[in-house]
């Protein structure tokens, strides 16, 4: 049986609980947004044509390398 509660004192807990929820979910959403941005940057870098290296000599084995899709 819950004891009688002082309504004013307990507002603090309600606000704290609400804040925890908002910070938890909102903070995670922000993190998620940043991770997605980083993944996009990495994907763009990986998909860009490779930087030109030293001039290859002879036949190009790279052209035959199979791409794992």
């Amino acid at each position: 049986m819950p004891e009688a509660v002082d309504p004013m004192a307990s507002v603090g807990y309600l606000i704290a609980a609400g804040a925890a929820t908002v910070v938890g979910i909102g903070g995670y959403a922000l993190l998620l947004w940043r991770w997605i941005r980083e993944a996009r940057v990495r994907r763009a870098r990986l998909q860009a044509p490779a930087a030109p290296g030293p001039a290859p000599v002879g036949p190009q084995p790279r052209a035959e390398a199979s791409r794992l899709s």
Partner: peptide, 8 residues
Amino acid sequence: VQGVVQRI
């Protein structure tokens, strides 16, 4: 019974 805090 619980007052405001029950809204949690």
